[in-house]
C-alpha cells in the first residue's frame, strides 16, 4: 500500500512530465483547470493514469470537484479508493 506522500509524488511527477510544469509552479490545493495546467483532455489523461498506475476504478459518479478539484483531493481520492478495494484488475483497465 502506497503512502499519501508516495501517491502525491507519483501524481506530481506525472503532471510535470505530461503538462510541462515544474513542481513549484502550481498550487496543490487549487484546481488544475483553474490554474491553466490542464485542459479537458488533461482530465481524461489523469483519470487514465490513476487507473493504470494505482489500479483503482474511476466511475462517472466519482468525477466531481471533491475528488478532482486539486492535487490534494486527487491524492485523497486515490488513497480512499485503494483502501476501499475499489480496484480494477490491471488487464481490464489497460
Amino acid at each position: 500500500m502506497l503512502t499519501d506522500k508516495e501517491v502525491e509524488n507519483k501524481l506530481i511527477a506525472f503532471i510535470c512530465h505530461n503538462f510541462m510544469v515544474e513542481p513549484d509552479e502550481f498550487n496543490y490545493e487549487e484546481s488544475l483547470v483553474d490554474q491553466g495546467v490542464i485542459d479537458s483532455i488533461g482530465l481524461v489523461e489523469i483519470s487514465a493514469f490513476m487507473e493504470e498506475e494505482f489500479g483503482i476504478k474511476v466511475a462517472e459518479k466519482d468525477m466531481d470537484r471533491n475528488n478532482f478539484g486539486s492535487v490534494k483531493k486527487m491524492v485523497a481520492f486515490i488513497v480512499r479508493q485503494s483502501a476501499q478495494g475499489n480496484l480494477t484488475n490491471r488487464e481490464s483497465a489497460a
Binding site: 484546481s31 483547470v33 483553474d34 485542459d39 479537458s40 483532455i41 482530465l43 481524461v44 483519470s47 474511476v58 466511475a59 462517472e60 459518479k61 466519482d62 468525477m63 466531481d64 470537484r65 478532482f68
Partner: peptide
Amino acid sequence: RHYSDTKAYGLMKLYYED
C-alpha cells in the same frame, strides 16, 4: 469522442463546472 463517452462525460462535466 471523449465528450459522448458516458464515462468521460463525468470529466467533461467537471471541466465545465470549473
